[in-house]
C-alpha cells in the first residue's frame, strides 16, 4: 500500500545519490522490475553493466549516472519498509511507484504534489488517518499537507 505523509523527516531517504551508492548491488540489474525502471524512466537499455540511451544510441552511461528518480525507485523496490522523500520522484516515476506499492507498504513524504495515474491510484493518508476515497481527495489533501509543511 502506498502511504502518504508530508514533510522531510530525518529518517526518510531524501538523498537518492548517497543512499544508492551505499545500497546498490549489481545483482539488482537481474531483476526485471529494475530493468523496466531503466527502460521506462531512463529510456535506456542495459547491456552488461552499461546503459545505452534509446533516444541517442551513441550515448552511454553507467548505473550510478541514472537519475535520482530511478535510484529512488530501485531503492523503494529493493529495500524493506522504504520511507522515501517524495520530491525525488518525477511524475514519470509515479506509475512504477504505484506498482511497487501493490506488493508492499511504501511510505512517501511529500513536499510537492506527485501526479499519479488517476485510474490506478490507491493510497493511505496519514494526515486523514484513512485511505483516500478518490483521487480528488488526494489532490486536495496534498495541497493542504504540502502547505502545512512548506516552511519547515
Amino acid at each position: 500500500m502506498l502511504k502518504i505523509d508530508y514533510g522531510r523527516p530525518d529518517f526518510c531517504i531524501d538523498n537518492a545519490d548517497l543512499e544508492f551508492e551505499e545500497e546498490f548491488e549489481y545483482s539488482w540489474l537481474k531483476d526485471e522490475f529494475n530493468v523496466r525502471i531503466l527502460e521506462e524512466v531512463e529510456h535506456a537499455l542495459l547491456n552488461g553493466n552499461i546503459l545505452y540511451d534509446m533516444t541517442e544510441i551513441d550515448r552511454t552511461f553507467g548505473i550510478y549516472d541514472i537519475s535520482s528518480g530511478s535510484k529512488a525507485l530501485m531503492l523503494t523496490h529493493e529495500l524493506e519498509e522504504p520511507m522515501v522523500w517524495g520530491p525525488l520522484f518525477g511524475d514519470n516515476c509515479a506509475g512504477l511507484l504505484l506498482e511497487i506499492a501493490e506488493k508492499k507498504d511504501v511510505v512517501i513524504y511529500l513536499k510537492n504534489i506527485i501526479n499519479f495515474p488517476e485510474e490506478r491510484f490507491r493510497a493511505y493518508s496519514f494526515r486523514l488517518g484513512r485511505e483516500y476515497t478518490d483521487y480528488r481527495e488526494y489532490e486536495l489533501d496534498a495541497v493542504m499537507g504540502v502547505t502545512e509543511c512548506m516552511f519547515l
Binding site: D65, S68, G90, N92, C93
Partner: peptide, 10 residues
C-alpha cells in the same frame, strides 16, 4: 524541475 531523467542533474 520536471520529470526524472531529463538530465537536470547532468
Amino acid at each position: 524541475t520536471g520529470n526524472s531523467a531529463d538530465r537536470k542533474t547532468e
